[in-house]
Amino acid sequence: MPISKKVILIGHFGVGKTSLIRRFVHQKFSDEYLTTIGVKIDKKVLDLDGLEMTMIIWDIAGETNQNKVPKSYQLGAHGVLYVFDISRPSTYENLHEQLDYLKGLLPLAPIEVIANKKDLLSEEEQAKVLDSIMHPSIHTSSAKTGENVEEIFQSLGKAMLG
């Protein structure tokens, strides 16, 4: 029986969390923005170098500050994907503060930081944004094109195996 892990996707609203899950689980994308109410879960079985993992993915409604999200949504998460929109500064301006909060809440869970919507900026513009954030490891992704999406979930899956 495959091991089962709870993964939460959090970040500001409109950064593309639901789209990343749709792309990862269903290989679909829509440009239309539909907000998530509360939480919605999905699951996918991953093959991590021969090891099967059922990833139960919690798509948590976006908030500008994570302390507005009911703690129960975050409890028991084995891994976190913190997503921001690389084209909207407000979604990464408080990144470090948000990450500190999450580390305090889930000290054992690996956290991957995702700069989504990379398709909206040039390579040069992306580099400028990433330089300004000063975080050692940020994955860039595009739910629209699918770029890096699978890799990010794989990476988190492996990190959760420890």
Binding site: T36, I37, I41, P70, S72
Partner: peptide, 10 residues
């Protein structure tokens, strides 16, 4: 007590 005020259930 764990409270989940809104869950899009399927």
């Amino acid at each position: 007590v764990y409270d989940f005020p809104a869950v899009e259930w399927e």
